[in-house]
């Protein structure tokens, strides 16, 4: 078990290294940060001065190794302009705040929204999928099919706008946007959860149907157990592996979806700061938020893998 965790941690570290490399290359391809900071009308001398100060005149390899070394220490650079006026920059080194803490302090808001969305998705989708499998071709079964088809077809931001239009503008039940208590989180969480509900319900349904067709189900029925017990204890235990897998995938999907949804609902999370930074070419912030999001997804995947071991006794660990 210990060695398994160690191996998985090592794999995650390698993946993180690859992602960081991609971020480095992408970051050097979106334009000269010095010109972005100083503006297009800046003279060549001060651009060169700033490039030297930023280390952009060094050879690529040196820059890359420095980037990795800093990243290892949790330093993903300082923001170019977040929270300061252009005058403060002058011609010298930007004295902006470190990017990583700026991103990390947005995490609670993002976790709040994503957590509610994931909870909604799981609470709705898993029972619905189980019931659909227990009563195939029932009304519920058909309804889940329609909803999941709609879920994979609808674009999140369109759905978000429609939800706002219906529940906030027309009906006036909920606020249109902003950060706050439960009333504020409902619409963005629903917009995030909708697609996942359909997919999770489908996977749950088909996993349950697979298990319910297996011989051990007949054994369970021959013991005179109730249909609920046969489904919820016997079939669900074995169907739980694909259900946990899809839940992990959907958590990752929701974490990426959160960027656009936070923007639409002015939700002060990691997504909002990332989009903001992107539009301002604030590279360190973008790097930091990609780093944080990838780290979260890796942790979720690690937890999913550990859950397999608990749920499926046949998975042998070496």
């Amino acid at each position: 078990m210990f060695r398994y965790i160690l191996r998985r941690l090592l794999q995650s570290a390698i993946l993180l290294f690859i992602v960081l490399s991609v971020v480095f290359v992408a970051g050097r391809s979106i334009g000269d940060p010095a010109i972005l900071i100083l503006g297009a009308e800046a003279d060549a001398a001060s651009v060169l001065q700033l490039r030297t100060n930023l280390g952009l005149e060094d050879p690529m390899l040196t820059q890359y190794l420095r980037f990795l070394g800093d990243a290892l220490r949790g330093d993903l650079g300082a923001t170019y302009r977040y929270g300061m006026s252009r005058g403060e920059l002058g011609g010298g080194l930007p004295e902006g705040r470190a990017a990583l803490p700026l991103v990390v302090e947005r995490l609670p808001a993002t976790f709040y929204l994503a957590g509610v969305a994931i909870a909604i998705a799981m609470i709705v989708a898993i029972p619905a999928g189980i019931l659909a499998a227990m009563y195939p071709r029932s009304l519920l079964d058909r309804a889940i099919n329609v909803i999941s088809l709609a879920g994979v077809s609808v674009v999140e931001f369109w759905l978000a706008l429609m939800l706002v239009l219906i529940f906030a503008v027309t009906l006036g039940w909920l606020p249109t946007s902003g950060y706050g208590g439960i009333a504020y989180v409902i619409l963005p969480a629903m917009a995030l959860a909708f697609r996942s509900i359909g997919r999770m319900a489908q996977i749950t349904r088909s996993a349950m149907l697979d298990e319910l067709a297996k011989p051990y189900i007949i054994t369970a029925r021959a013991k005179g157990l109730s249909p609920a017990r046969v489904s919820l204890v016997h079939a669900l235990k074995n169907a739980s592996v694909p259900i946990v897998t899809i839940s992990g995938d959907e958590i990752a999907t929701i974490l990426t979806g959160v960027i656009i949804i936070e923007f639409i609902f002015s939700w002060p999370g990691i997504g909002q700061i990332t989009l903001d930074a992107l539009s301002r070419r604030d590279l360190p912030i973008v790097q930091a938020s990609i780093f944080v999001l990838v780290l979260i997804v890796l942790i979720v995947n690690l937890l999913v893998d550990l859950a397999y071991v608990i749920l499926n006794p046949r998975i042998r660990l070496r």
């Binding site: 054994t219 369970a220 013991k223 499926n312």
Partner: peptide, 25 residues
Amino acid sequence: EMRRVQGDRIAMVFQDAITSLNPGL
């Protein structure tokens, strides 16, 4: 009523015991 007969009064053993037992319990 049948569920009170199954297991209580008539029990059954199946052909392929390995697939007839629940692998997860």
